[in-house]
Design a protein around this nucleic acid. Structure first.
Lengths: 230, 230
DNA sequence: GAAAAAAACTGATCTAGATCATAAAAAAAA
DNA sequence: TTTTTTTTATGATCTAGATCAGTTTTTTTC
């Protein structure tokens, strides 16, 4: 099957111009109610079900946004630097985190007080409109990921994520791979063994090259074909 | 597996108070730029990839919101009356429908000019905030559906949709069933044959009763268990 | 450095659910 | 009413991918 518009990758590379809409006063208010925290690799920034007190802005690093239950996780998206996370928690009557967020690598995160953020949303229409725009783009990305994860087969899903990392996260055909095979499995919603097998296939077919923790994408065209074929 | 907060059903029964935030003037502007259209069963209200010119409000009836490609559809949500559809198309630089919408039954739909809608979003902060709230609730519902469709097994998924129809669409333990087995299959992301088998099981086990097109839910408790067990 | 633990790998087996094929029942058309 | 088409039903087969079990390699710890 072909996924014309869609991809398991949910990263949309656009400058985050949301905060440009703020007045000087509002900007100051936000600044006064923001703290910057450095998280180590694997740390939880936000736990599903806990009180949601911040909007999170990934200044540096890489994180995953995911749903959990007793037995398994579903990664909704990976969040590279410049991502804004936590907006979906903002709706009437809600004050808890709707998902968990954890870092893949050491990350610097701005934590913005959610009350202040909400207050500005309610008074600055341009800001609220931009926020709605961002949320809408986000929803579409999730739709695409949903579609692909429920339609594509294993090889397509792994090809997808490799291209995503190359094109949108690291923006280089060779990159320092932050994911273990089991993290990759979680990300593609497949078993670790299957990830290993598919990656092995890709290596044997000369599509990728792995040296220690560095992965090089040798044949994007073929990966693209595999991704879009399913 | 248990889906504590989540469900394949994406209907959130809350009064749509979005338009209460409008000034009289704005309300008039919306009214002047709204047309009401009646769609027959199975008609397409909005086609993925076409120009998105309206926000759709389901006044009466039942519709599905779905992604399509050459081979298969993914139903994102079912939209009963009082649903507002089409917001995700609103983001910078976009003017096409991100999904398709089609009716399950004859439906009356208000088509609101998207330009006017956007214009008000950009000037009325309360309105934009409410719209963001609605979008956020919607995104969470989709997350839940995503999680459940990728985790629950067949019986759980069918139990889910039956409870959803009972509790949130028809609000009655007995209702006139608008779905064929193959529509149900599309809705639960499974094959028609599997739906038939599962429905047969439920009938044989006395959980439901089907007489012509009317379905009666006889044992909600058990269906709930099946739904949450997976 | 050696020992322990974690991650990567590989083959064998298993299974949920799709697909296929064919029949029966129901609905629509003539 | 009869014929045609659509929907429902049911058993047989097939398969993608998970699970299991074991080995090798890499990383971490001591």
């Amino acid at each position: 099957m072909t996924c014309k518009f869609t991809n398991t990758c949910t990263i949309f590379n656009k400058e985050l111009s949301l905060f440009d809409e703020l007045t000087e006063e509002e900007q100051k208010l936000i600044e006064e109610n923001t703290v910057t925290v450095t998280y180590k690799k694997g740390e939880t920034i936000c736990k599903q079900g806990s009180f949601s007190s911040n909007i999170m802005y990934i200044k540096e690093g890489l994180a995953k946004v995911y749903l959990e239950n007793d037995t398994s996780n579903l990664v909704l998206k990976i969040a590279p630097k410049n991502s804004l996370i936590g907006m979906p928690s903002i709706y009437e009557g809600n004050n808890i985190c709707v998902y968990s967020v954890a870092t893949y690598v050491e990350s610097i995160v701005n934590l913005i007080d959610i009350k202040v953020f909400q207050q500005i949303l309610q008074t600055n229409a341009k800001f609220a409109f931009k926020a709605l725009n961002i949320t809408n783009e986000n929803i579409i990305q999730i739709y695409g990921r949903f579609f692909c994860l429920s339609n594509k087969q294993l090889h397509g899903r792994v090809a997808d994520i490799l291209l995503c990392l190359k094109d949108r996260v690291y923006k280089n055909h060779s990159f320092d791979f932050a994911f273990s095979r089991s993290e990759l499995a979680e990300l593609t919603n497949m078993s670790t063994e299957s990830v290993i097998r598919v990656m092995k296939n890709f290596k044997d077919d000369g599509l990728i090259l792995q040296k220690d923790k560095t992965i090089e994408i040798l044949n994007s065209d073929m990966l693209n074909k595999i991704s879009s074929f399913g």
